[in-house]
């Protein structure tokens, strides 16, 4: 019971890797888009807003299929990537990370945007009267103050990645050791009649991973709130 099988180890690390890479893609783009949506006003903003939210309202299988059309080996962008850089995304863990990132993107943007919207614009104005240009204002005031939202968005995106199934299986299939994350492996075992032990073992591993993420986010959020001076009890 205590020793993990190769399939379990592979699935665990792969899930972690896919989730982390998906956040790495999501975070910078998500913060940028959230900032644009929160602060800028331009014609066609509703279009960007809608586009960002699309993965949230579309069936994951559809998203996976769109990704396949775009990024598959014969896809519009995929073919070009393959011929120019020799990069294959479809049916690889990179594809799984991209599928996760796309599905998690709206959650990230929403969380960060909410946080940006709640920042007192007066603080940014105050920074400008103190001689700070837009870039300095963003990195010294806006971003630090939106950290709680950035953390919340990251955790949501991470959780979304851990559970990503539909888009992943459609886009990159279910290849052990390459694209078979925990939910996909679990799905595999549930399709085999008989002993339920392997499926339950995977379920427990998933639970541990999810709980670990929650605890980590809680610790992080507390630290950030303390640094932001948001808990009034703190003195000195």
């Amino acid at each position: 019971m205590l020793t993990l099988t190769q399939i379990e180890i592979d699935a665990f690390y792969l899930t972690l890797k896919v989730a982390l890479f998906s956040i790495a893609i999501c975070l910078p783009i998500g913060v940028t888009v959230a900032f644009i949506l929160s602060r800028a006003s331009f014609p066609g903003k509703w279009l960007l807003d809608g586009l960002v939210h699309l993965p949230l309202v579309m069936p994951p299988v559809v998203v996976g299929y769109i990704l396949l059309i775009l990024l598959g080996k014969r896809g519009i962008i995929g073919e070009w990537l393959f011929q120019t850089f020799d990069i294959t995304i479809a049916f690889s863990w990179k594809g799984a990370a991209i599928a996760s990132a796309v599905m998690a993107f709206p959650l990230m943007v929403r969380a960060v945007r909410l946080s940006l919207d709640s920042i007192d614009k007066g603080l940014e104005a105050a920074a400008r009267t103190l001689g700070a240009n837009n870039i300095k204002v963003f990195f010294t005031i806006t971003l630090p103050l939106s950290l709680p939202g950035v953390i919340a968005g990251t955790i949501l995106a991470f959780a979304r990645s851990l559970g990503e199934f539909g888009a992943t299986i459609t886009f990159v299939s279910n290849i052990p050791g390459e694209t078979q994350t925990l939910p996909l492996a679990l799905y595999n075992f549930t399709q085999i009649p008989g002993d339920q032990t392997p499926a339950i073992r995977l379920l427990i591993i998933s639970l541990i991973l999810a709980f670990g993420a929650l605890i980590a986010s809680d610790v992080l959020a507390r630290r950030v709130n303390k640094r932001l001076g948001l808990n009034a009890g703190e003195r000195d």
Binding site: D120, G122, L123, A125, A126, A127, R128, T129, L130, G131, A132, N133, T140, I141, P144, L145, R227, L228, G229, L230
Partner: peptide
């Protein structure tokens, strides 16, 4: 001229101190 280049000091009614910075960091910000 942009606000940040006007070389003015502005004390707001509500102070508008940066909550995530210490008093010293606030003082030295500009």
């Amino acid at each position: 001229v942009a606000t940040e280049k006007r070389g003015l000091g502005y004390v707001f009614q509500e102070g508008r101190l940066f909550p995530h910075l210490t008093v010293e960091e606030n003082l030295l910000y500009g």
